[in-house]
Amino acid sequence: MNSPNFWTEAFIRGGGGGMLGDFVNSSVTRGGDGITQYLTGQGPGEVISATGDVAQWLGGLPGGKDKVNGKTFAQHVKAWVPGSSLWYTKAATDRLIFDNIQAMIDPNYRQSFNRYEKRMKKDFGQTFWWAPGDGLPQRAPNMVTLGR
């Protein structure tokens, strides 16, 4: 915590930079929106996003994007369901609803969940008390480390 790099990264990754901070690390926000949706605002941005979804469904987008696969379809469903990102219900809706949708339509769902867990461990040192794809938590949350 003594280095300026730590505080710069904390500002960008921690949300202090807002949506513009997301664009420093990626061409999309954490919500998956691109710069076009950000610049045009909420209403037109959603229309642009929906148009892209429809184009992808109809055979892929120009520039190499493939048709929608099981994982992508599950992400689209999750993005358009109201209330799916509420912080107090997110873990339950992700594990009980959206993981099951992905498991039903994506033949490679287990590999996808494993890659996600490895990425969260590598990038943030985070493990899951209720892992992706699990019907119920395997253990209770570790409350001892929450205050650190």
Rank of each mutant, 00 (worst) to 15 (best):
Y88W: 05
D94E: 14
K78Q: 09
F113H: 11
I97H: 02
I101S: 08
A92W: 06
F113D: 04
S112Q: 12
I97M: 10
V81Q: 02
P107S: 13
R95P: 01
A103H: 09
A79N: 07
W87I: 05
S84A: 14
V68Y: 06
M104D: 14
P82Y: 07
W87D: 06
G83E: 04
K90D: 07
L86E: 09
D66W: 08
N69G: 15
D94K: 00
A92C: 05
R110F: 13
F113T: 04
V68G: 03
F73C: 09
W80D: 05
K67P: 04
W80E: 05
W87L: 04
V77Q: 00
R115C: 02
Q102Y: 10
K78P: 01
L96A: 13
R95W: 01
W80I: 08
N100H: 08
R110V: 14
T89E: 01
D94V: 00
Y88L: 05
V77F: 06
Q102P: 11
T72D: 14
G83V: 01
M104Q: 15
L96Q: 10
I105T: 14
A91P: 03
Q75A: 12
K67I: 15
W80M: 07
D106K: 07
F98N: 01
F113L: 07
S85L: 03
L86F: 04
R110I: 13
W87V: 07
F73S: 08
Q111N: 14
V81K: 00
I101C: 06
W80T: 05
F98H: 03
A92K: 07
Q75S: 09
A91L: 08
S84P: 02
F98K: 01
P107H: 11
Y109K: 09
Q75K: 10
A79E: 02
A79Q: 03
V81E: 00
Y88E: 06
W87K: 03
I105Q: 12
T72R: 15
K67Q: 15
Y109A: 11
G70F: 11
T89V: 05
D106L: 08
V77E: 00
G70K: 12
K78C: 02
Q75P: 00
R95D: 00
F73R: 10
I101W: 07
Y109R: 08
W80A: 06
A103G: 09
V68K: 07
Y88R: 05
L86G: 04
G83S: 03
P107T: 10
A92S: 08
V68W: 04
D94S: 02
N114R: 12
N108A: 14
V68S: 06
D99Q: 02
I105G: 13
W87Q: 07
A92L: 10
I101L: 14
Q111K: 14
Y109D: 06
P82I: 07
H76R: 08
V77R: 00
P107Y: 10
F113G: 02
V77M: 04
K78E: 03
V81N: 00
D99H: 05
G83T: 01
K71G: 14
A91D: 13
A91K: 11
Q102F: 10
K90A: 05
R110N: 13
D106M: 08
A92G: 04
V81A: 03
W87E: 06
N69Y: 09
K71T: 15
W80F: 05
V81C: 04
F98T: 01
L86S: 06
R115G: 02
K90L: 05
A91M: 07
V77P: 00
R115V: 04
F113Y: 15
R115S: 11
D106S: 10
Q111V: 14
D99T: 01
D66P: 08
A103W: 06
I105C: 14
